[in-house]
Design a protein around this nucleic acid. Structure first.
Lengths: 193, 193
DNA sequence: GACTGCCTAGGTCATTCGTCCTAATAAATT
DNA sequence: AATTTATTAGGACGAATGACCTAGGCAGTC
């Protein structure tokens, strides 16, 4: 069906626009123009803007899940998997410096709008938090796994936020290095009695 | 002059509304209603919405500067001054969980809007960064002072962001505790972050 | 009491937005 | 070929927004 393809194009274009301009600031017209379809056609695929947002969140969730699954296949050392996560800050540095973290800024915007889909957007964070917790657990961090996961998520959010504000690539590099070092210090060494 | 008072009321109301609803989402009508003045009267005091934003940023800067100066007067131990900064997360916990960090969310929104006043808003971060750097310098951290200041700012941003997303007071408490511990480890003895 | 400058009230205007409708076209099925 | 279904086009609508204007009220001063 052609509709599926058009729908997918819309979601991807909306994904970019919501990230770069924010959800509220990106209009139907903007998205339609990006996909090169008419506003009427747009309405055929999505009845409301919230429906687009819901589809974008689902798309982002799918993308992240795929990425995490790939890391699990490619790398069986949980510490290295966690390093993959930290490395997002480097891999996406340019976009993060320009627009911040896609997940964090969306959650923050939806919180201010008191939007009904805020919990769905938070699900993106939950996905990462639970995945990181799993990795820390495999590392042998036991009941600390959850706290460590939240701590690392917190740092990546903080770095993204300040990277966006200060446009300082050196700062990002430094903090990523510090996260690596912090990671190495977690869990083992297991001290002898 | 009555105008000064009305203007001040407008700025304070706009400050709150920009924080709780976001800059774009807060309309002239919203602010005018909060101050209980007519939209026409509003226009007498501020010609454009950007002018309101500029005034709000200046107001926030003044407030923070006053707060930092007070901390310097009340507390001559730089470590305790830094603890005051960390404690903002506890003192403003309710608001932060509801609306995020006033500085961070504003900067992030203005970045997405590609707004002309983004540098002015970033000035709020710079104020804290330079003040923290000064405190770390007085602590004897030498040329690390700047990096440590940015690191602490980063952590407070990350905590505010996740606090807003997850509404988890226990997480905030835990991370504040971790920041205290981290602070105690800085300068001397020099330890990795 | 009239004048002048500061302040306020309420309304208008053009624009943009999300939403929705209808008619036309393309594709699929019979 | 005929009919039905899927997809697209373009415009219309009301609501909301930022911006702007003008008329009037209220000081204080001469």
């Amino acid at each position: 069906m052609k509709a599926d393809e058009t729908r997918r194009k819309i979601v991807i274009a909306a994904d970019h626009l919501f990230y770069e301009q924010g959800f509220e600031n990106a209009s139907f017209a903007d998205i339609a123009q990006a996909v090169e379809i008419s506003r009427g056609n747009f309405y055929y695929h999505f009845k409301t803007k919230d429906a687009v947002l819901a589809a974008v969140i689902e798309y982002r969730l799918d993308e992240r899940k795929t990425m995490l699954r790939l890391w699990e296949l490619e790398e069986d050392n949980p510490a290295n998997r966690i390093k993959n996560f930290i490395n997002i800050l480097i891999a996406n540095q340019t976009k993060i410096m320009a627009f911040g973290c896609p997940v964090g800024t969306l959650c923050s915007e939806l919180a201010k709008l008191d939007h009904a889909l805020k919990p769905e957007a938070s699900g993106l964070f939950t996905l990462f938090a639970e995945w990181l917790e799993q990795q820390f657990a495999e590392l042998g961090c036991g009941d600390q796994a959850s706290d460590l996961a939240m701590h690392l998520l917190m740092r990546s959010q903080g770095v993204a936020s300040l990277a966006n504000t200060f446009q300082d690539a050196e700062f990002v590099r430094r903090e990523v290095e510090a996260m690596y070092k912090w990671l190495d210090q977690q869990c083992p060494p297991k001290r002898p009695m």
